[in-house]
């Protein structure tokens, strides 16, 4: 299968007076049509900034300093290098929403309180389809709300975002993102602010929609449970870098990077024994201003190789089985060459 989006060695830095924050420092992955890529990591790993970089929505003082984001348009034409397009240019605006849509963690702040939600969905429809009449746009909006499982869609269209419950608001948000049937949907922690039962509803909805629209989803979350359930491919991020990447089954059952392994073991599982101690990762995530030298994980890694891991940064290298890992334990040859 041909990828629809390729991100290669993406680096997005924030230049602040206190210092440079390397929010994304070497992220590489591919997105395939109809598939879900899970982008997982803890706070400060740069997963959200990666998403914003793809849409070219990084605000100052942030800037993409290196790497490429190749987008392959639907008509099979030339691949577009998104990092080279002006972020406010016509092409980029066309891509945002129509080709790549984004849904956020907190649906409350993504809506204006001054317009009804229907108004906002219709606006999204008509931005990319200017010829559409008011009535046709309204019919499309009602249709979208029905598809996203909003009961009483016709009435809900005239409500304001604060009149809706969290779950409904997220459904409306998804409806808005789907207004132009995007080819890629970026979902940034779409269920983190929701309760588990509501989360289950939204995840099921996303799966259904993916099946019927055939879109690719980039699912950003810190929840390994959500990843296991939704993703086909997984990219694990730590301090701005993709440290491991591979099919979901391999990531969960044959993880190679010490961080992935430790992370998986430290998750409290609903299947675990009551009142048992959990294995932990020692220390804490470093402050973005004081990134460790060498492999970003080495100060917390129990398998670090002295003199190597604290000196050199391992590259993300593809293994024979298609999994890729950035760790010297798995490509010692590279060390010798250094």
């Amino acid at each position: 299968m041909e990828p629809i989006l390729t991100v290669d060695n993406l680096k997005t830095y924030f230049f602040q007076s206190e210092g440079t924050v390397k929010a994304v420092d070497g992220a590489s992955f591919e997105v395939y049509p109809g598939q879900t890529l899970g982008l997982v990591g803890e706070s400060g790993c740069g997963k959200s900034i990666t998403a914003r970089s793809i849409l070219r929505l990084v605000d100052k003082p942030g800037r993409i300093v290196d790497g490429s984001i190749q987008y392959y348009p639907a008509n099979g034409g030339q691949a577009l290098e998104l990092t080279e397009l002006p972020s406010d240019g016509a092409t980029m605006r066309e891509i945002r929403g129509k080709d790549i849509a984004l849904i956020f963690q907190e649906p409350m702040t993504s809506f204006s309180a001054h317009y009804s939600v229907g108004n906002q969905i219709m606006e999204a429809i008509r931005i990319h389809d200017r010829g559409l009449s008011q009535q046709a746009a309204r019919a499309r909006a009602v249709d979208l709300l029905r598809k996203t499982g909003v009961p009483m869609a016709e009435q809900r269209l005239d409500m304001y975002s604060f009149q809706l419950s969290g779950g409904l608001r997220q459904r409306v948000m998804i409806a808005m993102a789907l207004a132009c049937t995007p080819r890629i949907l970026i979902a940034d922690e779409p269920t983190t602010a929701l309760d588990v039962t509501t989360q289950a509803q939204i995840l099921a909805l996303l799966k259904d929609l993916q099946r019927s629209f055939g879109m690719a989803i980039i699912l950003i979350t810190h929840d390994m449970g959500v990843i296991a359930e939704m993703a086909d491919e997984v990219a694990v991020m730590y301090l701005g870098r993709v440290v491991e990447r591979g099919p979901v089954d391999q990531i969960f059952h044959a993880p190679r990077h010490p961080y992935t392994r430790a992370l998986l073991r430290s998750i409290p599982s609903i299947d675990g024994e009551p009142r048992t101690k959990l294995p932990t990762i020692r220390g804490s995530i470093p402050h973005p201003y004081s990134r460790p030298q060498g492999c970003p994980f080495h100060p917390r890694c129990l398998e670090r190789i002295a003199g190597v891991c604290d000196q050199h940064e391992p590259a993300l290298a593809r293994m024979a089985d298609g999994q890729a890992v950035a760790c010297f334990l798995h490509h010692r040859e590279e060390i010798r060459q250094n």
Binding site: P255, R282, G283, S290
Partner: peptide, 25 residues
Amino acid sequence: MAQSVPAIPTDPDHLVEDIATDAEE
């Protein structure tokens, strides 16, 4: 779940250790 993940050595002492530079101090 727990069985399917390869064992890694655990660190029993998770005292929060970090060395602060003078500036951070």
